[in-house]
Computed example of a mutant assay.
Amino acid sequence: MTDALTRLSQEGVAIWLDDLSRRRISSGALGELLDARSVVGVTTNPAIFQKAISAGDGYERQVHELATRRVTVEEALRMITTADVRDACDVLRPVYEETGGLDGRVSIEVDPRLAHDTEATIAEAKQLAWLVERPNVLIKIPATRAGLPAITATIAQGISVNVTLIFSLERYREVMDAYLTGLEQAAAKGLDLGRIHSVASFFVSRVDTEIDKRLDSLGTGQAKALRGKAAVANARLAYQAFEEVTGSDRWQALSAQGANAQRPLWASTGVKDPAYPDTLYVTELVAPGTVNTMPEATLEAVADHGEVTGDTVKGTYEESRRVLDDLEALGISYEEVVNLLEEEGVEKFESAWNDLLGSTRAELERLAPKEG
């Protein structure tokens, strides 16, 4: 483990890998990252699986068997992805045991086409939890308006959840409320709250991408000075909201019953603008009780030259709020940006899912038994 990753872990940041493939599991590469890079969790999404399946590396036998059975593309996709997540859960099971269930987690996402259908999302979450059948799986549910009650219902059934696609501070507060409500309902059913876990995935880099584009169109010196500051400021203010909620009487009552805090997870941490340091969304978001899920390139960048100097979030709230206020003063609407990013996020997930279905269909056709 490198000094930067060691320090990051010591500061209370759980390092998760935002990638998964069958080859990464079977080759032992995933297991090696647990020791060499302090990785204690894994997140997946449709784009990650699409890349893995289209490469075909390690999937041929299962796809051939599925094609022989003439299953639907949707069923084949679920069998393939849940198999990978199940195996990854087994690789990370020792971490899960060592941390009392806090880490060692692997996330799998509900069908994003259901993002605006509450009941279908709840049913899908239950099905995925049943298919994977591992205590360290997290079911990813998008933080759409319809997703909020689905989060509550899923938590209330004792299923651990990764809430994804959070961009705005208001929606994040609603997500935390949905989690607490779910815990309260679970407690009323007599469920063990200590076995329920959740993270709230707050997306980072996409905020800068959208706001920087608007700043560039203004072209003023003041606009230029604000480039690359919005995403970090937004995430830091999310942590402030997290501190407020975990300091509330409502949370303290649940905590006394053994409940686990819903940790903020920094997602979309790969830097998209080459003008910025490639470790920006890691080193500037160091705070205890958080998770940072990184694509491998970002993980390696931090390992190679990341500078972790301690907590970089607490004490920044006033400055962060000023960044958002300055953007509003320039005519850049925070509410408009975060609403757009949520809409685009769902669309991107749906598009990636459709691509994933296409890749799976192509592999089923390629590996189907030849007639005659």
Rank of each mutant, 00 (worst) to 15 (best):
Q252H: 05
Q127I: 00
R195K: 15
H305L: 07
T118K: 09
G247V: 10
P264Y: 04
S205D: 07
D304Y: 06
L356D: 05
I108L: 14
Q222W: 04
V40W: 03
V137T: 12
Q157C: 03
D3W: 01
Y179R: 04
S168N: 13
Y172V: 08
I25M: 10
I196T: 05
P142F: 11
V232C: 12
G358R: 05
T82Q: 10
A4R: 02
I166M: 15
A230Q: 12
E343I: 14
T154K: 06
K189P: 08
G219C: 03
V302Y: 01
E243A: 09
R214T: 07
L33F: 01
M176K: 12
G190Q: 14
A146R: 11
I155L: 13
T118N: 13
V245Q: 08
E98T: 10
E119H: 12
P149D: 08
D326N: 11
L265F: 01
T298P: 07
E170I: 09
P277T: 07
T144H: 05
A200D: 03
D304R: 14
V71D: 04
R70L: 07
F203I: 02
V204I: 14
T99V: 07
S333C: 05
D19I: 08
V338F: 12
A125V: 03
E363G: 01
K51T: 13
T283H: 09
E284H: 13
E11W: 04
L183A: 07
D87M: 12
K348I: 00
D212M: 09
P369T: 10
A188F: 13
V207T: 12
H305T: 03
I141P: 01
L280K: 15
E65A: 15
L8V: 04
E32Q: 14
V161N: 02
L30K: 07
Y317N: 04
